[in-house]
């Protein structure tokens, strides 16, 4: 049942709108807590962010809108994550995160319509240098 479109005007209006920047000061304690949470004892992560740390630099504004959009699909899953590292994120950095919804796609799933929401994030340091580029796909069904 691809049937009715779940892609509302509210969702379409979010397409390609840049949200943020949301600013994160990268403190040593934040890195330590993250490394402990992922159970990675590499001492390198006391000074430098481990690979998946950008997951903690959440673009709340966009995600809040995407997760709470008024559509009949209520269950949410993270579909894919992709990160490209241009420079390390280090303790003491100030990282600005911008995010946008780049694409919406509805497919017919086994239990009804499934909506894929494609997002892109850019992480920029205090010198204006892009340090990480990220992509994430969220699935609602």
């Amino acid at each position: 049942m691809a049937g009715e479109s779940v892609i509302t005007e509210e969702l379409n209006n979010l397409l390609n709108v840049e949200f943020g920047p949301e600013v994160y000061e990268i403190e040593k304690g934040m890195l330590k807590r993250f490394a402990e949470a992922i159970d990675d004892p590499n001492p390198k992560w006391l000074k430098q962010a481990p690979p998946t740390f950008p997951a903690a630099l959440v673009p709340h504004e966009l995600l809040h809108k995407l997760f709470n959009v008024d559509i009949p699909l209520k269950r949410l899953f993270n579909g894919t994550s992709e990160l490209e590292y241009l420079q390390p994120i280090k303790a003491g950095d100030v990282i600005s995160v911008t995010a946008k919804l780049t694409r919406l796609r509805q497919v017919a799933g086994a239990e009804g319509p499934t909506l894929f929401m494609f997002t892109e994030m850019t992480y920029t340091n205090q010198r204006g240098e892009v340090v990480v580029k990220g992509k994430n796909t969220y699935i609602k069904y």
Partner: peptide, 24 residues
């Protein structure tokens, strides 16, 4: 993150992770 640790453990001090992606 666990997969990332596996890769960075293997890369050691002198290797660099340039891209990482995963499908759930």
């Amino acid at each position: 993150s666990f997969l990332g640790q596996m890769v960075t453990d293997w890369l050691g001090e002198k290797g660099t992770l340039l891209k990482l992606n995963g499908s759930y």
